[in-house]
């Protein structure tokens, strides 16, 4: 993790009619950081992620993602980020390789580069034997790991993960976090939401949203100390039950 800022948000606000979904959010995310983005259902997390991914315009605020202005350069932002959610997975009727090839082509990677990188990736994951298997025929845990690897295949500056481990078995969930750590070590920033509070403790820093506002932002250990509790689960309960 460095001091180079990869996301800067100043007074980010999003209104739907009279409802303020994001209320003056100000925060920075650093290069290579694992940034946990927490909050209760309906706190405004999805709205904020959609803005940061260039999919929705804020009502007000100054926001830069990967060095690009959210208002004027949102197409450039899309090229420099990766995205994965629990629901979005890969195309079931394409093979493992066809999926990688499809996404990489969309991001403008060259054929020979894709082929080389795909082979390297599958070897690293010890999944080469499944290169030509259809996605629908591989286990769920593998799908999630592949979906993540696909989201960072074009070497984005930031990857957004929206509840990537929901429902995944405890062993695979930890393998998934190994991938996240490796990715962050390579300098890719990881912006992640989760309902597992043990996973919140794997992040370098976490923010907690409540009713459209960021009410806490610090390292997990500092938050645990500040709220005089034992773990992030208790921090979350204290904040959300206020």
């Amino acid at each position: 993790m460095t001091q180079e800022k990869i996301i800067t948000a100043k007074n980010m606000t999003k209104k739907f009619g009279h409802f303020v979904a994001n209320d003056n959010l100000t925060f920075d995310v650093y290069k290579g950081e694992i940034f946990g983005f927490l909050g209760a259902n309906g706190a405004g997390k999805t709205t904020a992620i959609r803005i940061l991914c260039g999919l929705s315009m804020p009502s007000a605020g100054e926001i830069k993602v990967a060095g690009f202005d959210i208002y004027k350069q949102n197409e450039k932002i899309k090229k420099n980020i990766g995205y994965m959610s629990q629901k979005f997975s890969l195309y079931e009727d394409l093979t493992v390789y066809e999926n990688l090839n499809f996404y990489a082509s969309i991001y403008g990677m060259q054929k020979n580069e894709i082929k080389k990188k795909a082979d390297e990736l599958l070897e690293k994951l010890e999944f080469s034997y499944a290169k030509n298997k259809l996605i629908k025929d591989i286990p769920l845990g593998w799908k999630q790991k592949l979906a993540f690897s696909t989201a960072v295949f074009h070497n984005p500056k930031i990857v957004f993960l929206d509840e990537p481990t929901g429902g995944v078995d405890p062993v695979t969930r930890r393998q998934f976090w190994d991938l996240i750590y490796q990715t962050a070590e390579e300098g890719i920033t990881v912006f992640v939401t989760t309902h597992y509070m043990d996973e919140a403790e794997y992040c370098d820093r976490v923010s907690i949203m409540d009713e459209g506002k960021i009410v806490a932002l610090d390292t997990p250990l500092n938050l645990i100390e500040q709220y005089k509790v034992q773990n992030m689960d208790e921090v979350f309960v204290k904040i959300a039950r206020k």
């Binding site: 209760a40 259902n41 509840e163 429902g167 309902h195 979350f236 039950r241």
Partner: peptide, 10 residues
């Protein structure tokens, strides 16, 4: 409780 936040789950 799938997809429900930690407090609502409790």
């Amino acid at each position: 409780t799938t997809g429900v936040d930690a407090v609502s789950r409790k």
